[in-house]
Design a protein around this nucleic acid. Structure first.
Length: 229
DNA sequence: GCGACAG
DNA sequence: ATCTTGTCGC
């Protein structure tokens, strides 16, 4: 397996391939969400990709994959843990989404190469990073109402690496950043549009649901081996 | 050295 | 991520 040191070297190489401007189809017809679920006791990890119709939010396709965890959790090397099940799930899809919203950061990362960038560069499709909590960067003066935005500023060079975005009045913001082939304003607008009823975008909520389901199904399958004739 | 630290 | 019910507040 890849070592943490090798992973950092790979990030430094791949980061140069990130495209931080809009290169997505218009109009957008389909949007996918990805999420990963863990089972601490069995060391299993399940990744899911769910594709939605962009205008109706109806589910068009779902794919999941369960496997053993192959990389430890190290802040900054998170993508090496979640990429394997996500890539396998994505491979099973019969349709290619116009873009993906993944759970976790994109450029809002210490080396500017979070999961959203890694997934985007690897699949070569537009990806938005949307994390539930902050990894790095500082923000201030974020309004309390839905739609309020404050830039996420990197400590070291004051670069804008993402946005803190309030998707519901008085509720903790989400952290939006560029993954690949999309600009920050576009990414922020899309996340706000996808998060109407709840704090998280519908894509993430559905992917979370299907990943949890895949993990449960896989575990019950292990407990009930196939019957012999 | 100390604190921070996506899931 | 996960361990985990009720409870406080909009």
């Amino acid at each position: 397996m890849i070592t943490p040191t090798e992973a950092i070297t790979l990030q430094e190489q791949l980061r140069t391939q990130v495209i931080a401007t809009d290169a997505l189809p218009h109009p957008i017809r389909t949007i996918a969400g990805t999420d990963v679920e863990y089972d601490k006791s069995t060391n299993l990890i399940a990744g899911s990709v769910v594709v939605l119709d962009y205008s109706t939010l109806s589910v068009l396709a779902v794919a999941s994959h369960c496997m053993e965890v192959s990389f430890p959790y190290i802040p900054g090397l998170f993508s090496f843990r979640e990429m394997p099940p996500l890539l396998e799930a994505y491979r099973q899809l019969t349709i290619t989404p116009d873009l993906i919203i993944c759970d976790g950061q994109g450029l809002a990362h210490h080396r500017r190469f979070g999961l959203a960038c890694h997934l985007g560069v690897t699949l070569d499709i537009p990806v938005i990073g949307c994390g539930k909590t902050r990894l790095c960067g500082q923000y201030q003066d974020l309004g309390e109402t839905r739609g309020s935005v404050a830039p996420l500023i990197a400590e070291e060079d004051q670069a804008v690496i993402g946005n803190a975005l309030r998707t519901r009045d008085g509720i903790n913001p989400v952290f939006v950043s560029i993954g690949h082939k999309i600009s920050l304003p576009t990414a922020t607008g899309i996340v706000l549009k996808m998060a109407t009823q709840y704090r998280l975008p519908e894509t993430t909520r559905l992917a979370d649901h299907y990943a949890r389901l895949a993990l449960l199904e896989y575990k019950t399958g292990l407990n009930e081996p196939p019957v012999s004739i």
